[in-house]
């Protein structure tokens, strides 16, 4: 993963979050962001909802680079096939996130207040089982383009933290299983050049 491509997949973000996504020390990320800003490829927006993000030129540059990487590796067919596997899993992951947030009580959907440990354990067990199948798809993705292995690592980390009691790592926080999954989705669309 490069810092430039990470920003294309995660949107505007602060330095710590970019470092977490790309898997590099913050200081290295910061120095690269400055170089990219000098080249006109990224910009920093101030304010509560600000952060580092791509400029139009940065988006074009990354599209060229990621397409070049894909074609020179001859990876398009393999990545497309793996993306099909991702799309099969996608609705199930969203079902699981929904089951984490809402549960049925007497036929009514209510917010899961996470006071029922056994219910949470049941949902997390399904996440663990789902993750085994997600890992298979991640391996197919990284066999096509090695940088995709970063998602396998981040998904595993999110699940580990959720299992250890950091419940926000399922669907709520930045870095949660759901947000990493959504970033992977965005990466696949961006890399394969598929419009939303």
């Amino acid at each position: 993963m490069t810092v430039l491509h990470t920003l294309r997949c995660i949107g505007f973000a602060g330095c710590p979050r970019i470092a977490g996504a790309v898997g590099m020390p913050e200081s290295d990320v910061e120095s690269e962001l400055i170089d990219l800003a000098v080249a006109g490829l990224v910009t920093h927006l101030p304010g509560e909802f600000g952060g580092w993000g791509l400029t139009d030129a940065g988006r074009v540059a990354d599209a060229e680079r990621s397409t070049g990487e894909l074609e020179s590796a001859g990876a398009r067919p393999a990545l497309t096939a793996a993306f099909d596997g991702f799309l099969v899993l996608n609705p199930e992951l969203l079902d699981l996130c929904t089951a984490w947030q809402l549960r049925s009580a007497d036929g009514v959907m209510i917010a899961n207040d996470h006071r029922d440990r056994s219910y949470d354990a049941r949902v997390l067990a399904r996440f663990a089982e789902f993750h085994e199948r997600a890992v298979v798809v991640c391996h197919e993705l990284s066999a096509a383009l090695p940088r995709f292995d970063r998602y396998r690592i981040r998904l595993a980390e999110a699940l580990k933290r959720a299992d250890a009691g950091e419940l926000g790592y399922v669907a709520d926080d930045i870095g949660s299983y759901h947000s990493v999954w959504a970033e992977l989705h965005e990466d696949l669309l961006a890399t394969l050049g598929i419009p939303r």
Partner: peptide
């Protein structure tokens, strides 16, 4: 639907 990216994020 109720299990979409927007729905999950909104509830979060």
């Amino acid at each position: 639907g109720p299990a979409s990216h927007a729905a999950v994020v909104a509830r979060a």
